[in-house]
Write a protein that binds this DNA or RNA. Sequence first.
DNA 1: CACCTGACATAAT
DNA 2: AATTATGCCAGGT
Length: 111
Amino acid sequence: MKSPDGHVTSYQLAVYDAVRMIPRGKVASYATVAAMAGRGTGRTVGTALAKYPFGPETPCHRVVKADGSVGGYGGEPGGPEASRKEKLLRAEGVKFQDSGKIDPACFLLPE
DNA sequence: CACCTGACATAAT
DNA sequence: AATTATGCCAGGT
């Protein structure tokens, strides 16, 4: 469980690198991560994250949807793990609106 | 090489 | 405001 799967494309690594640079207490939309990676779109980023086994250094929980929803987690969209994801974000200092959406001020500005 | 799927985004209805 | 349809791009079959 230390090293991830061996078959990883260049794009996956680029997405990881972008996700890893997200500061604690902030979040970035899938599209923003794609912009930082330099390639792809929100869809490709989400697909990339879902397929990858993930190491402990990749804060995939800091990646959320553009409308403020937490998106997915644990390789499943809107799954039960997504609730845990929200809890993690709260623990890191991310504020949530009463509507259940993330505060726009916690979003990392795209490049 | 062609078709299908998918942790998204945006516009239109 | 909520739901539906279309566009995007990379990966897998």
